[in-house]
């Protein structure tokens, strides 16, 4: 009920927002989240659970137990002769497939002029391995804000970080191949 009232008041505010010229540089404002209404046909799900869901495509690397990371051969590096003998040879280097527990990580490092200019993900843990179509009804208008770094001291930090170790491992492998001798 509280959410309903909140929604109503925000709708009213939004009407005003639309009718009058918008002020500049708002930091926090209520706007309509673009919750698509594509699937209105479907019946209302119980307790907010989506009614229509595309069957997941569970193509996890786990289907075939893999014994060990399988390094893939690196593509032929571009031939650029470095004058000052930089740390890395130019080219593209593929890292090993590193186990991130929830899946595998594999990166490709791109070296230009002896420097890392790009790191691309070839493989990424895919525990969110699905596409899903949910029944979106008229949603309450939710508050939005621009994120802003805080200085607060906190006890704990929540974030999606699982992949970082495997990322470093795969990148380290790619850079090993890129390293110039001597």
């Amino acid at each position: 009920m509280r959410k309903f009232f909140l929604s109503s008041s925000v709708i009213a505010l939004f009407a005003l927002y639309v009718l009058f010229p918008r002020p500049r540089a708002e930091d926090t404002h209520a706007i309509i989240p673009s919750l698509a209404n594509e699937n209105k046909k479907q019946s209302r799900p119980v307790a907010g659970i989506p009614a229509t869901i595309t069957p997941p495509n569970i193509l996890a690397p786990t289907q075939v137990p893999v014994q060990a990371p399988k390094p893939k051969p690196a593509p032929t590096p571009a031939r650029v002769i470095a004058k000052n003998k930089p740390l890395f040879k130019d080219g593209e280097y593929v890292g090993n497939v590193a186990d991130a527990y929830y899946g595998y990580i594999q990166v490709k490092a791109v070296i230009e002029n002896g420097k890392i200019t790009d790191v691309q993900f070839l493989e990424y843990p895919n525990d969110r391995r699905t596409s899903i179509a949910i029944n979106t009804e008229a949603m309450p208008l939710l508050k939005m804000e621009a994120i802003r770094a805080q200085n607060a001291q906190v006890n704990i930090i929540s974030g999606a970080t699982d992949s970082s170790i495997a990322f470093r491992e795969s990148l380290a492998y790619a850079l090993t191949q890129a390293k110039n001798q001597t």
Binding site: I147, A149, A152, V154, I156, I157, G159, T161
Partner: peptide
């Protein structure tokens, strides 16, 4: 307990507590 939500664009920062 105070829990910071990590900034996904700069993982050294938090954007909400």
């Amino acid at each position: 307990w105070s829990v910071g939500i990590k900034n996904p664009f700069n993982t050294k920062e938090i954007v909400k507590t």
